[in-house]
Design a binder for these strands. Structure first.
Length: 658
DNA sequence: CTTCGATGCGCG
DNA sequence: AAAGCGCGCATCGAAG
């Protein structure tokens, strides 16, 4: 703390102190109180608080965590507002000593992220940025000995006469959190939004107060609930996977004639580009130092695996591709997942509300948002996420959420029409875009129905229900058309240019450019939407979502083309991705408000961007599904130009709940 | 000894 | 010369 800052003196009340009774009464009368915990660690279900601090007015108070239950009445008050630097985490800690927080959770990290999305949202950073105070970090003040846990370090602090230091540190955090909240509230109130709903969200404070703040609690419940894991299943597949890994490692070493660590890219580079004399075709991005190395990624290995004239390289590439797949599955999911289970074999991911610049969630410890899909995963890891006994999993998926929102934002009549008539957007787009040109080229105008038919033939041929001869040239043309429309559609939302499109469609740059031109000429409102998003960004410096969440793009005027293009891409994408995030967020808040838990025994477990997962007692699954679907399909204050549709189903595991 | 950048790869 | 958005994790290996 700098010399010129005067904080109120810290107050310490040991367990059993008579004066605590007065504190309890005082806190009970407060509308808002800032709180911070000092805990045994960072695990949201296993760790617990050792000390806690409260701050209000010019008071800052520290007590042992054993006093938390004395404040039960305050915690039970649904109207009280608790201010935290990291609300979800601290309330987990309270829950871990048996105290649920009924009040509202105000999180300064989340508040900060709405204003300064590119900056750190840590308390220490905000203290410096907003208060101008440089406080010392926990690790600095309480450096742990080797192998010592945070909890052990804290207990040693008290034993070794460092209690004053601890009290000063702990109360300072709570006090600063309260002050920072005041500053951030003021700043949020002074930032108008460009929301579609200006009455509900005139400025960022409303966005925080009406959406993000209740959302924090929804996420807390998801994290708390966790997902049941079928441990037996994981163990069952672990054996064969590890066997195969060993076998493949031996094979790789045999091929190389020496020991190679398949997880060391430098070693692999030496082997493939040195020993095996593969000619580099692509290079890595090059980090800070800008050193671009020959790539050793999946694309490159797949290419090598198709070179018959270099049989050793071919074999090694095939082995390595397989090894990478197996090692990731085993390390991250089979072994990694089991380490994270609680005593009820449930996994508790953490949903981060303030990481993604677009307002999306991120998931960590473990990341439940990048588990392989059923189609891609021979080990069916998703099958290991199950419903508890007597329960179902319910999974609801938005269908083409981002494309629907694009159609609405752009007010593109052709796309809106496709959605209103409940057709597949990529098939519809393909027919619109390529139909006329195919007529010129092939004398046959490809229709929407042709593509539907082609897709169905393709499916049946792949399933062996129809002979290969059914895959006529026209069928192939239809499939290519759909794939192209899909790739371009998604690609443009990400700001893809002809260069990259040519590579992903395997065509020339000129062809790719013509395809993009044709696409945007056919859907002119989409082109206009992209243009106006960039214009808006140039006029304001920001891009905005439907509810008014914003993102700053200072590079929009950069003289460096790559930088400017980057800002343009992000501005366009933030409109779409961020609005989709808004929609799902509102749906989750409504699911919570509708008290599905009380009505059906429903508990929300996961969000995977456009997908929600619930655990539900079997007896009420049917009713719950109907209500959830209705909520998810009508998340906004008003209806949009196209309906948001949700496919929803239930089952015993993540695989068969769709 | 820990930390951090780089790489590769999974999801929407 | 290159130019696709948004994330997290495991791992290696260099740097502090």
């Amino acid at each position: 703390m700098p010399w010129n800052v005067s904080l109120p003196p810290p107050e310490w009340y040991p367990h059993g102190d008579r004066r605590i009774e007065a504190i309890v009464r005082e806190v009970l009368d407060l509308d808002e109180v800032a709180t911070d915990t000092e805990t045994t660690g960072l695990n949201i279900v296993a760790d617990f608080p050792l000390y806690w601090s409260l701050a209000w007015g010019e008071r800052r108070v520290c007590m042992p965590a054993t006093t938390i239950p004395y404040f039960r009445e305050s915690f039970a008050d649904p109207t009280k507002r608790w201010i935290f630097a990291n609300a979800k985490y601290d309330t987990h800690m309270f829950a871990n000593v048996g105290i649920d927080t009924a009040g509202e959770l105000m999180c300064t990290q989340v508040m900060h992220s709405l204003l300064y999305e590119e900056e750190s949202h840590e308390l220490k950073y905000m203290e410096k940025q907003l208060l101008g105070w440089q406080t010392r970090s926990f690790k600095d003040l309480f450096a742990p000995k080797k192998g010592e846990t945070i909890g052990e370090r804290l207990q040693r602090a008290e034993r070794e006469g460092e209690l004053d230091k601890l009290i000063e540190y702990a109360t300072c955090d709570a006090y600063c959190t309260g002050k920072i909240k005041g500053i951030l509230k003021h700043q949020l109130e002074n930032e108008p939004t460009f929301s579609l709903y200006p009455e509900q969200f005139p400025n960022l404070w409303h966005l925080f107060f009406k959406v993000e703040m209740p959302f924090t609690k929804v996420l807390w419940k998801c994290e708390r609930q966790g997902v049941k894991v079928d441990c037996e299943y994981l163990k069952k597949i672990q054996g064969p996977i590890e066997e195969e890994i060993k076998k493949l490692e031996r094979k790789l070493n045999r091929l190389a004639g020496r020991l190679i660590n398949p997880q060391s890219n430098p070693q692999l580079r030496e082997y493939f580009y040195g020993d095996l004399k593969i000619k580099p075709r692509t290079y890595t991005k090059g980090g800070k130092k800008g050193v671009r190395e020959p790539s050793i990624d999946g694309k490159m290995l797949e290419w090598v695996a198709e070179q018959p004239d270099n049989p050793d390289a071919k074999a090694a590439a095939e082995v390595l591709l397989r090894l990478r797949d197996l090692m990731k599955t085993n390390g991250t999911y089979i072994v990694g997942m089991q380490k994270r289970l609680d005593q009820h074999q449930r996994i508790h991911t953490r949903f981060n509300q303030d990481v993604a610049r677009t307002g999306r969630l991120s998931s960590a410890n473990p990341n439940m948002q990048n588990v392989k899909t059923v189609e891609e995963d021979e080990w069916q890891v998703r099958g290991a996420f199950i419903a508890d006994e007597g329960k179902d999993l319910i999974v609801g998926d938005y269908e083409q959420l981002e494309m629907r929102l694009l159609a609405c934002a752009a007010a593109e009549p052709a796309m809106i029409d496709i959605f209103l008539s409940n057709r597949d957007i990529h098939m519809g787009n393909a027919a619109l875009i390529f139909g006329p040109s195919y007529e010129k080229k092939h004398g046959w105008r490809m229709s929407y129905e042709d593509i539907v038919e082609a897709k169905s033939i393709d499916k049946k041929v792949k399933a062996g229900k129809l002979p290969d001869s059914e895959m006529t040239e026209l069928v192939r043309l239809c499939l290519v058309a759909r794939l192209r429309a899909k790739t371009i559609g998604f690609g443009l939302n990400y700001g893809m240019k002809e260069n990259k499109l040519a590579r992903s469609l395997d065509c020339t740059k000129q062809e790719a450019k013509d395809l993009i031109d044709l696409y945007l000429k056919t859907l002119p409102a989409v082109q206009q939407f992209y243009d106006s998003a960039i214009e808006e960004c140039k006029a304001t410096g920001y891009s905005f979502t439907l509810l008014g969440r914003r993102r700053f793009h200072p590079e929009i005027f950069s003289s460096r083309l790559t930088e400017r293009w980057g800002a343009e891409r992000k501005a366009v994408n933030n409109n779409i991705q961020g609005t989709a995030a808004d929609v799902v967020k509102l749906a989750m808040i409504r699911c919570d408000r509708e008290r599905l838990d009380l009505r059906f025994g429903t508990h929300m477990e996961l969000q995977v961007h456009d997908e929600l997962m619930f655990e539900n007692p079997k007896e009420t699954t049917r009713e719950a599904i109907a209500v959830i679907q209705d909520i998810m399909e009508h998340p906004l204050p008003t209806n949009l130009a196209v309906p948001l549709t949700v496919s929803i189903g239930s089952g015993p595991s993540w695989i068969n709940a769709k």
